[in-house]
Structures are given as C-alpha cells and as structure tokens.
Amino acid sequence: MEFSLDRFDLDAFVAATLAEDLGNPPRDVTSESVIPADARFSGVMDSRDAIAVAGLPIAAAFFRALDPSVEIEVLAGEGEAVAAGSDLMRLSGNARALLTAERSALNTVQHLSGIATLTRAYVEAIAGTGCALLDTRKTIPGLRALEKYATRMGGATNHRMGLWDAAMIKDNHVAVAGSVGEATRRAKAAGVTRIIVEVDRIDQIEPALAAGATHLLLDNMDADVLREAVGIVAGRVPTEASGGVTLETIRAKAETGVTYISVGRLTQSAPAVDIGLDFALA
C-alpha cells in the first residue's frame, strides 16, 4: 500500500514512534515473555464509533516494519464514512510483532480518524452554502503533515502549511508595524505574493486592501458584522471568517457569503475515536 505526503517521512515516523515505545535496547518485555517466538496471530481492526477513516496506510506501515511478511487487507478507504462496528483492516502475521506494533498503529488511526470525523461534522454543517472549511496551524508539533492530511480526509481544505508559504499579518504584527496598512505595505514591498491580513474591525478593511492584501481574515466577527464586511469587500479578495467558530455557529457565519471559514479546533481539540484490534491465534 503506497502512502506519501509532502514534507513527511513515513519510515522515519514509524521508526521514531516504535523507538519511543520499545526503549533502548528495543524490547517488548510482555510479548517476549508471554508469546512464543513462532506464534502467529490473525486479527481485525474495527471501529466502535461512526467515523471518517484516516490513517490506515500508516497503521499498516507499523505492522510491516516489525513483520515484513504480514498479510494485510484494508477494508475501508481513506476519508470513507463508516458506521459503528465496521471492520477497517484484517491482518495475519507473527504474533509478537503484531502485538508490539498494535498500540502505535491504533494511536495513529484513532487520532487521525478523530480529526477527520470532527472535520466531516463541520463540513456537513455548512453544506450548500458555497463556503469552504479551512484548517489552521494549530497542530501538535511534529504531526502537522499527518493532521492536515486528516482534515483533508474529513473534507476540509488545507490553509497555510507553515510560516513559509504565505504572509499572515495578525494583530501583533500590526502593533509593531503601527497599522494594518503599514504592515501590509511592508509585506508587499518585500515581494510577498500571498498576503493574508487579519482585520477585527470594519474600518481596517479598506486600508488593508489599498496596501495590497490578497486575502482578508475577518477575526471574531459575528454574523451581522461578517455580512457587512463581505459587502464592503465586494469580491475583491477572498474572505475568511475565523475565531471562536463552533458547530452551533458555523452555518450562520457561512451564510454571510464569506469564502472560507477556518477552525482551529479541527486539529487542536478533536477527540480520538474508539478503534480496537482483536487478535486470535492463526
């Protein structure tokens, strides 16, 4: 099963995660002492919750790292919505290896599917409005590529992957530069082509646009103010609602006509879903 992401080294991730669990020298004390070296297991990974699936190819990589001859059948597609009780993966191989890799594999799938599942709920909440859901940089250090992959599996669009791919001028940048317009002018003068400017007041919109903003982030505005802001921008640049967005408030914000809504809690606060792996002697 091929799996690759830009700026993500799957082999290094698997090796580092297993090393964290196995210690130095690497050892699974329980499996070594309880399970015969030549015992074989077969098992089924299943979801106890209704979920949007994400991370099965990564789980498979953990098992293959410890048992290259493991037999794996993936039963659900990435991004697929499955009901509680659905089987996700069947596998058969060396019992010690599968037990040693089990927790790392499950942790990854539970976390990524949790993000995808929460993301799917937000996407469904704004269905039909024409507004797109964006993720943010509020990710666990070291897991950004994976977590943003999971939001895509849930139906969101990746926003900035890092500090390198666009300027985002926020209140602290404005405080240092002196004004929204001055901060934006400096970014444009530096040759930056994508300039996202956060505004939290209506009177900041025209100065930001005049100075060269290519995208406006409308921060912590309620639906009425968002609607006014969208009218002022009048399609000159994309608009993004952000700040304090919940499942209860997102549709009203989407219906104001904003181009995007960004939600940090997709990666910051998504709960892990309940996925298990039950083994039996092969």
Rank of each mutant, 00 (worst) to 15 (best):
G181D: 08
H173Q: 08
P141Q: 06
T139F: 01
E182H: 08
V174F: 00
H159V: 15
P141K: 02
Y149R: 03
T139Y: 06
L134R: 10
A175F: 02
D135E: 15
T184D: 01
R194Y: 11
G142H: 06
K170W: 07
V180K: 00
D165R: 01
M161F: 14
G155H: 05
T119W: 07
N172G: 04
I140H: 14
L143E: 08
L143I: 06
M153H: 09
T151E: 11
G181H: 09
M161E: 15
D135F: 13
G191N: 02
E198V: 07
A156P: 12
C131S: 09
E198F: 09
K188T: 09
W164Q: 12
G128T: 04
Y149K: 05
A121L: 10
G142E: 01
Y122V: 06
A190L: 08
A175K: 03
I195Q: 02
A190E: 02
T184A: 01
V174A: 03
M161W: 15
R144G: 01
G142K: 01
A175P: 09
R194F: 14
A167E: 10
I169L: 06
L163W: 08
T151A: 11
A121P: 10
A190S: 10
D165H: 09
R137V: 10
A150D: 00
A125Q: 02
L134Q: 11
